[in-house]
């Protein structure tokens, strides 16, 4: 847990310094007769984040030195089983999102839901197929037919418009 805390703090320092550097594209100072320039807020905010993140890091280092057996740093960030469970659905979830732009949100969702229900959740074929087809169909009718919000269809677009 402590290690994760430090990694995040270090990550925050690097990211915010990068953003601060980017913010200098606009004036970061106070302009005469106008007040703060366009880069002022993002620049000083990111420097501030870097500074406070550094304090978090120092705090974590100091507290662990003070009492080695402390409960403060105890606890694991993520157990091995937890990570495995997370990856079993999280990764396919990410793939589902990436596939939306390629094979349409409907097919991508159908595959993902089927995978989760059938392969991970252990539901029977009937339930799995029913939900994985039913959800996209409902989404299709609500969004495309009723609300008329076209959702991404990628290369499968022609399938939705026959005429």
């Amino acid at each position: 847990m402590q290690r994760a805390d430090r990694i995040v703090a270090i990550g925050l320092i690097f990211v915010s310094l990068g953003v601060a550097w980017k913010a200098t594209e606009l004036p970061v100072g106070i302009l005469p007769k106008e007040g703060p320039g366009g880069g002022f807020l993002p620049f000083w905010l990111s420097l501030g984040i870097a500074a406070v993140a550094l304090m978090v890091l120092i705090q974590s280092l100091v507290s662990s030195r003070r009492d080695k057996s402390a409960t403060a740093g105890a606890g694991v960030f993520m157990s091995r089983e937890g990570l495995r469970d997370l990856m079993r659905v999280g990764l396919p979830g990410m793939i589902m999102i990436l596939l939306i732009g390629v094979i349409s949100v409907y097919f991508s969702a159908a595959l993902f839901i089927f995978y989760c229900l059938f392969l991970v959740g252990g539901h029977n074929l009937k339930t799995s197929l029913g939900v994985s087809i039913g959800v996209p169909v409902v989404v299709y009718y609500i969004f495309e037919k009723f609300l008329i919000i076209p959702l991404p269809k990628g290369y499968a677009e022609f399938l939705f418009y026959w005429n």
Binding site: M96, Y115, C116, V135, L151
Partner: peptide, 17 residues
């Protein structure tokens, strides 16, 4: 196991619209 994948799909649609 049924709710989670549906929620994730709905979130994706909700993030897009």
């Amino acid at each position: 196991t049924i709710l989670a994948p549906i929620i994730l799909v709905v979130c994706a649609v909700g993030g897009f619209s």
